[in-house]
Every structure is written in C-alpha cells, then in structure tokens.
Amino acid sequence: MLTANELRSFIMNGLPCDHVEVLGDDGQHFEAVIVSPAFQGKRTLQHHQLVYGVLGSRMHAEIHALSMKTFTPEEWSKQV
C-alpha cells in the first residue's frame, strides 16, 4: 500500500519542486499541493499532466484518486 510520504517522494524525485504536501491515509486516495517552476507558462491541465507523467503507471495501479492543487513559485507566494 502506497503512503502519502512515498507519493511525495515520487513527485519530488521526478519534478523540480519548491514545495510538496501530500495527504491521504487509505493508500489509494490522495490530495496534493505541488509548487514547481516547471509549471511556469503552462495551464493547470498541463501542470496535472506533468505530475501524471512523473507518476506513470502508479496512477493506474496504486493510486485510485489524486486531487491536486498546483502552483508556480510566484503563484504560491501569493497564496501564503
């Protein structure tokens, strides 16, 4: 069973990130906040596609649902 910490590591190892928070306690349903400079100049859908690309087959096998809030570092600085 996948943990939130493992999912966070997968995201951080596959995408340059300034900040990643992952919540989820059932091993299949997760919520994530991801801040990455790789999102710069891209639409939200493209942000999500980048994350899905990093997670690859885990999205079909280990992760049933992943709710994401994605931000560029500039957008994130306005949120905090």
Results as ranks from 00 to 15, higher is better:
residue 2 L to N: 03
residue 3 T to M: 00
residue 4 A to D: 05
residue 5 N to D: 11
residue 6 E to Y: 00
residue 6 E to N: 07
residue 7 L to S: 11
residue 9 S to H: 13
residue 10 F to W: 15
residue 10 F to N: 05
residue 13 N to G: 14
residue 13 N to R: 14
residue 14 G to N: 03
residue 15 L to V: 05
residue 15 L to D: 10
residue 17 C to A: 04
residue 18 D to F: 15
residue 19 H to A: 04
residue 20 V to H: 02
residue 21 E to P: 07
residue 22 V to Y: 08
residue 22 V to P: 05
residue 23 L to W: 04
residue 24 G to P: 02
residue 26 D to V: 04
residue 26 D to L: 05
residue 29 H to C: 00
residue 30 F to N: 00
residue 31 E to D: 13
residue 33 V to P: 03
residue 33 V to I: 12
residue 33 V to M: 08
residue 34 I to R: 02
residue 35 V to R: 06
residue 36 S to H: 06
residue 37 P to K: 07
residue 38 A to K: 01
residue 40 Q to E: 10
residue 42 K to R: 06
residue 43 R to S: 13
residue 44 T to L: 10
residue 44 T to F: 15
residue 45 L to A: 09
residue 46 Q to V: 03
residue 47 H to W: 03
residue 50 L to G: 08
residue 51 V to T: 06
residue 51 V to H: 02
residue 53 G to N: 04
residue 54 V to D: 04
residue 54 V to C: 06
residue 55 L to V: 11
residue 57 S to Q: 10
residue 59 M to A: 04
residue 61 A to E: 12
residue 62 E to K: 05
residue 62 E to F: 06
residue 62 E to I: 01
residue 62 E to L: 11
residue 63 I to M: 13
residue 63 I to F: 09
residue 63 I to Q: 06
residue 64 H to K: 03
residue 66 L to T: 00
residue 66 L to A: 02
residue 66 L to Q: 03
residue 67 S to V: 13
residue 68 M to G: 08
residue 69 K to S: 08
residue 70 T to Y: 01
residue 71 F to M: 06
residue 72 T to R: 15
residue 73 P to R: 07
residue 73 P to S: 07
residue 77 S to G: 08
residue 77 S to Y: 03
residue 78 K to G: 07
residue 79 Q to A: 10
residue 79 Q to K: 08
